[in-house]
């Protein structure tokens, strides 16, 4: 096994394309190193993308946030503007692991590990974030929800890797929130996770809303109907219940060691309501 740490996107693409499927991208390594040690993977080559400048940047261009794929949760949390613009995305990133893990774990890794329970993915999908992907044929940009295709499976081709996340410019009175359920208070993996991103008008009516749920299907899913339920309302309790019903209807979970399908479905609705309340409160003050 060889370890490479290229400093340019082009060099990384070349290294990744050269070895084919037996090559793995290393960002924070908090999943990759565990899988290596457990003998789950045995790649020929590991390409560390952390030395590529674009993967490490956090920028705000005319109100649009751009976060490099290898930015750690701790760096994102400490950025002076990121949390103010996308509090839901940042709180999702900060939920991952311990203080030590926070110094390593990245948005890019959390997405491309393709766990259905990844915390940042529902928040990123709800936010409408897009991935800037580098590859042998140049750059392309796709919605976050198009990256994961199943547990451990992603749509990226040979030689491709996620370079950065691009977030849309936010209208006034917009905010987001992410909540997950775990049996413990930290150091755990989501049994259910719900991200919501919404915009209110001056009268406090919801003008747009996007709800995404994790750990209830093979990949994190957008629940269009749940968002649509909120639009035009003041997100009153009755509407929230209707929205939660849409979320529950969209859940296709399995029974596993982390929870039963029945439990996940029930709690997905509960978290959707609670996250919406938080996002509405934030949007009013945004």
């Amino acid at each position: 096994m060889r370890y490479e740490s290229p400093e340019t996107t082009e060099a990384a693409v070349e290294l990744l394309a050269g070895e084919g499927p037996r090559c793995r991208v290393l960002a924070g390594g908090t999943d990759l190193l565990v899988q290596l040690r457990a003998g789950m993977i045995s790649p020929e080559r590991i390409v560390d993308i952390k030395r590529i400048r674009e993967t490490q940047e956090i920028r705000v261009d005319d109100g649009a946030l751009v976060v490099g794929a290898a930015v750690s949760g701790a760096e994102l949390g400490e950025h002076p503007q990121a949390k103010g613009i996308w509090p839901g995305v940042v709180e999702a990133a900060e939920l991952i692991g311990s203080t030590q893990i926070q110094g390593r774990a990245t948005l890019g890794g959390n997405l491309c590990n393709a766990s259905p329970a990844a915390d940042t993915v529902p928040a990123l999908i709800a936010a409408g974030a897009r991935c800037r992907i580098a590859g042998p044929h140049g750059m392309r940009t796709i919605p976050v929800e198009d990256v994961c295709t199943g547990p451990g499976q992603i749509s990226l081709g040979a030689g491709e890797f996620v370079l950065a996340f691009e977030f849309p410019v936010r209208p006034p009175r917009s905010s987001d929130a992410y909540l997950r359920f775990i049996p413990r208070t930290e150091m755990d993996i989501a049994v259910v996770g719900v991200g919501i991103n919404l915009t209110l008008d001056e009268g406090g009516h919801c003008v747009s809303a996007r709800v995404a749920v994790g750990a209830v299907a093979p990949t994190a899913i957008v629940v269009e109907k749940a968002g649509a339920t909120l639009v035009g309302t003041r997100c009153d309790e009755q509407t929230l219940e209707a929205m939660a019903a849409e979320v529950r209807a969209a859940c296709r979970p399995i029974d596993d060691k982390r929870g039963t399908a029945e439990y996940r479905t029930a709690v997905a609705g509960v978290l959707a309501i609670r996250a919406t309340r938080i996002a509405v409160e934030r949007a009013r003050n945004a």
Binding site: P183, R184, T185, E186, M187, D188, I189, K257, R258
Partner: peptide, 11 residues
């Protein structure tokens, strides 16, 4: 210890 859940400090 991820899925055999002994308490963590914050619990």
């Amino acid at each position: 210890f991820l899925d055999y859940r002994i308490p963590v400090c914050s619990d």
